[in-house]
Amino acid sequence: MSYKTCLATWMGVLTLSACSTTSTPVPLAEKIDLDRFMGKWYVIAHIPLWVDKHSFNAVESYELAKDGTIATTFTFNEGSLKGPLKTYRPTGFVREDTNNALWGMQFIWPIKAQYKISYIASDYSSTIVARDKLDYVWIMARKPTMDETEYERLLTLIKGYGYDISKLRRVPHDTQPTN
C-alpha cells in the first residue's frame, strides 16, 4: 500500500471515529445567539484532553468571522497559575439546522470534532459544551469563578447526560488571570 493510500485510509478512520456517537445523544441547547455567545469564556471544570490536563487559567475566546466560521483562541498556563502560557487556535464550523448549538471544531485539517453546546444560561453567564461520545465536557462561565450552587446544578445536568463526573477536573484560576 502506498504512503498516500495509507495516509488517506487513516484520515478516513479518524474522521469517522470523530463522528461516532452513543445510543443516547447529549441534548442540544434550544438556540444559541452567536453574537451573545462570542467573547471570553473561563473553563471552570472539564474532562481534559491530553493537551490541557494540567491547565490553569484556561480561557476559550470566540470571534465570529465574516465567512461564518468561529475563530477560537484557547489559552492556559501549563502546570501552575504562573506556568508557561499555551495558545491554540482551532476553528469552529457551525452546523446548519442546529440553531447554532452544534459545531465542528477543527484543530487539524480535515478532522472536525463534535462541539455540542448542550446548555446555555438565559443570561449567557454559563454554558456546558459536551460530546455524544461522553469523552470530554466543559463547564464554562463569563467569570473565572462560579457560584457553588450553580456549579452543582451543572454537574447534575452532566451526570444526567451519562458522564462519569468523577473524571471532571476543576480548573484553578487566578483572581487576576494572566491570559
Rank of each mutant, 00 (worst) to 15 (best):
K53Y: 08
L7S: 12
K167Q: 14
S17C: 12
Y3C: 10
V59C: 12
H54F: 02
Q176A: 11
T15G: 14
F74T: 11
D97K: 07
V26R: 05
Y136M: 04
D164A: 10
E148Q: 14
P25N: 13
T15L: 12
Y62Q: 02
K167R: 15
R142G: 07
L81E: 07
L49P: 08
P110H: 03
L64T: 11
P144L: 04
V94K: 02
T91N: 05
D135N: 14
L157T: 07
S2A: 06
L85Q: 08
D123M: 07
A71F: 06
D132L: 01
W10S: 11
E63D: 05
E63V: 07
Y151V: 06
D135S: 13
D123W: 10
E63L: 10
E152K: 09
K86H: 09
E150K: 13
L7W: 10
I165M: 04
L85Y: 03
Q176R: 09
A58S: 12
K112L: 14
L168A: 11
S55G: 09
M105V: 11
W109N: 12
F56I: 00
L49C: 10
T145R: 08
D35W: 04
V129K: 01
N179M: 05
M1W: 12
V13E: 00
D147P: 05
T91Y: 04
S23F: 14
K40S: 11
S166Y: 01
W138R: 07
D147M: 03
K82L: 12
N99L: 06
I139A: 09
I44C: 00
W103Q: 06
Y151G: 03
M11I: 15
A101R: 12
P144T: 07
G12Q: 13
A58K: 09
P84W: 00
L28V: 14
L81D: 06
I44G: 00
R131P: 09
E60M: 10
K53D: 01
I165K: 03
L154T: 07
L7K: 15
E150V: 12
L134T: 14
L16C: 11
M105S: 06
D33G: 08
K116L: 06
G104Q: 08
S23V: 15
L81T: 02
F56Y: 06
Y62V: 00
P27V: 06
R36Y: 05
W41L: 00
Y163F: 08
L155G: 02
L134E: 10
Y124Q: 07
T149V: 15
T22G: 15
H54L: 07
S17Q: 08
G39K: 10
D135L: 15
Y119D: 06
F93H: 15
D97V: 03
E150A: 08
L134I: 14
A101F: 08
S125G: 13
D147G: 03
A18I: 05
T156E: 15
